[in-house]
Simulated assay, not measured.
Amino acid sequence: MPTARDTVLLFTHSGDYFTVDRVAQEVSRRGLRPLRIDTDGFPSEWELTSMLGPAHQDVVLHTQAGEVRSAEVRSVWLRRRVPPRLDETLEPAWRESCARESSAALVGALDGLTGAGCRFINPLGADEAAGNKLLQLRLARAHGLEIPRTLVTNDAERVRSWFDEVGGRMVAKMLTPLTQSMGGGQPFVYTTAIGPEHLDELEGLRHSPMVFQERIDKSHELRVAVVGEHCFVGAIDASRSVEGQVDWRRSRPDECAWSPGRLPEDVARRLVRLVAELGLVYGAADFIVTPDGRYVFLEVNPGGEWGMLERDLGLPIAAALADALASEGS
């Protein structure tokens, strides 16, 4: 008799609470067994075994909640994958080697779960490919979404010339995030306005290129959580925040709050098609809504935060993710 595939693995880290708890609750309501896996606890706190032979393969996870085999797993939510917490007394080179080996073993096990027919959100490897911001902008433009004029360079002279081309209205940001959690406690580089006084201070480009974009006038901003064909929209207006006018994440909690947002149907359709072409089931997209009503696409984050939209606005994002995890499709 075949084993029931009634387990949903929720891969995250030990500091993650609200979102993973909400998805676990919704998975349970669908008659399935959610199993939280804190990736920073491997290999010190739980065991992982991958087996592969001529006619057999299996992945076995042993946690405090018990043992689970790949044949029991219906789906996997790759909420977060973070480096392991290793013994600080280990010699540095050995510690680095242990971290690499642990990461490689985990990636191999995830591939084994894929081979066993487990559904992934997002599909294994899709987050890394979809994280290419220039690819996102190119595809967004191809799907008919408006995008800001963008320059990625380490050429300081070109930045100075481009500053004049955009009329002195320019922001700088990074291609890759240092952290994705809104309360992650890790280093974070915010989007920053660039003025004439900064144009003689670009020597740092010798060490790393940056993204420069034209600064778009804002009525407000949108965070759109896309799950399959569903868009859940929150709006935020940080115009009254001195620190948050360029990047709402710099605002104080008392300066702005989330409110229900709206995305026109044609923009929503284009966004859903973009997320699908990037190979994602879930993505968090950011838009600027201009004073004259244009919707300007900024980026889509494959692991972007959505907890504040569910917590503050009651948007059923966890339920939508649970529906996708409960489905039998690959």
Rank of each mutant, 00 (worst) to 15 (best):
A235R: 01
G204Y: 15
R252L: 10
W258A: 09
E243N: 12
G228M: 05
L199M: 03
E229F: 04
I194M: 10
E229S: 12
R249A: 07
E201A: 11
L205V: 06
H198Y: 08
D200C: 08
S251P: 09
I236S: 00
V211T: 09
V233C: 08
V189G: 08
A193S: 13
D237C: 05
A238Q: 06
G244Y: 03
V233E: 08
E221P: 03
A225V: 03
E221G: 02
V189T: 10
L205T: 00
R250C: 15
T192N: 05
I216Q: 03
R223Y: 10
P196R: 12
R240Q: 15
P253A: 05
K218G: 06
E201M: 09
F232K: 00
D217E: 08
S239G: 10
V226I: 13
Y190E: 13
D200M: 14
C231P: 00
T192S: 13
D247Q: 13
V211H: 00
L202A: 04
R250L: 15
P209H: 01
C256G: 11
E201Q: 11
R215F: 12
D254C: 07
Q245S: 12
V189F: 15
G228E: 05
G244V: 02
Y190R: 14
H198Q: 01
V227M: 11
H198S: 05
E201Y: 10
D247W: 14
S219I: 03
R215W: 02
G228N: 05
E214K: 01
G244E: 01
M210R: 10
A235G: 02
Q245M: 11
V233I: 06
R240G: 14
H207C: 14
T192V: 13
V233R: 11
H230F: 14
I236P: 03
W258I: 07
G234H: 07
V189K: 08
D237G: 04
R223M: 08
R215L: 10
E221Q: 01
V224Q: 07
A235S: 10
R249M: 09
G234L: 05
D217S: 12
Q245I: 05
G204V: 12
P209I: 01
V211M: 05
C256S: 14
I216W: 09
G234F: 03
D217P: 14
T191D: 15
L222C: 06
F232H: 11
P253V: 00
A257Y: 12
F212K: 02
D247P: 07
V227P: 07
S208A: 15
G195Y: 10
P253Q: 06
I216S: 00
S219C: 02
P196C: 07
D247H: 12
S251N: 09
E203A: 15
A257W: 14
R223S: 06
F232M: 02
H230G: 10
A235D: 05
F188D: 08
L202D: 01
G228C: 08
E221T: 04
D247I: 04
V233S: 04
C256Q: 10
G204K: 00
E221V: 02
H198T: 05
D200Q: 14
L199S: 03
R250H: 15
S241Q: 13
S241D: 08
V246E: 08
Q213I: 00
W248H: 12
K218T: 06
V242N: 07
E243Q: 15
C231H: 06
